[in-house]
């Protein structure tokens, strides 16, 4: 044990300090000091990573619990609402120069918005996916459920026609779109009835393209609360242009 180690305010050798940090046994103050070292000392950070991987299998003890939807909306609000809305105020608050930047920015933003507004009908009809109409036949072996799905880019709606099968009582069918390796995105619970339409929200719209996959899963009433299908997929099919 060297003198240097003796004087280490957190005690013990670096490796032990790293292990103690990973275990979480240190006091708040000690943790802050160690966290600062992780930021600044690469070799030390690697020791911490090492212990983290050693102990990682113990993480199996953590049981998955679905968090309330409010958490994700709060995260989005904090990360992204600020991003778009705060640019102007932040710049305007510090002096005349940035204030000029702010006003210029605002003028540019207004102009851009106006242009988009005017151009929107034209943009829509010239965008690559415009006026695209897609159809998918949704089936799955043994489920007895089949649907025909129709998507029109101009109305931004998915039309569904149920051919066979129905959710059992207390259950709902939910429609998902899957593009490539990406996780499924919900288009919502399919309303009851032989035919139904589902509006397609804007961010999801780009995913509803030829070659993407529509899938219907069996979910508790009101749909999946996890953001991913929780029940079996009862029907699925590729979107094809018509």
């Amino acid at each position: 044990m060297s003198l240097l180690e003796d004087m280490d305010p957190a005690g013990g050798s670096d490796d032990i300090v790293a292990a103690e940090y990973v275990l979480g046994v240190q006091s708040g103050e000690e943790r802050q000091m160690v966290a600062a070292r992780i930021e600044n000392e690469q070799a030390f950070a690697r020791l911490v990573d090492g212990w983290d991987s050693y102990f990682a299998p113990l993480g199996a003890a953590y049981v998955e619990v679905t968090a309330p939807i409010s958490v994700k909306s709060a995260v989005d609000r904090r990360l992204f609402a600020a991003e778009t809305a705060s640019v102007a105020p932040r710049e305007s608050s510090s002096g005349p120069l940035s204030s000029l930047v702010f006003w210029r920015g605002l003028a540019a933003a207004v102009l851009a918005a106006l242009m988009v507004y005017i151009a929107l009908p034209y943009l829509r009809s010239s965008a690559p996916s415009t006026g695209e109409r897609l159809v998918a036949s949704l089936v799955a072996d043994g489920s007895g459920v089949s649907y025909l799905a129709f998507y029109d880019d101009r109305t931004n709606e998915v039309g569904l026609s149920r051919l066979t099968g129905e959710p059992s009582s207390g259950r709902d069918f939910e429609l998902w779109v899957i593009q490539g390796q990406q996780p499924p995105l919900s288009l919502g619970v399919i309303p009851a009835g032989r035919t139904a339409t589902l509006p397609v929200a804007d961010p999801i719209r780009q995913k509803v393209v030829s070659g993407a996959l529509f899938a219907i899963s069996d979910e508790p009433a009101g749909g999946s609360t996890t953001g991913l299908p929780t029940g079996p997929v009862v029907a699925a099919g590729d979107l094809k242009p018509i």
Binding site: I178, Q181, Q182, L213, A215, P229, V233, A236, G237, D238
Partner: peptide, 11 residues
């Protein structure tokens, strides 16, 4: 199709 669903979920 179903295999694709699974693959997409275990991305």
């Amino acid at each position: 199709a179903l295999r694709r669903v699974h693959r997409a979920m275990t991305q």
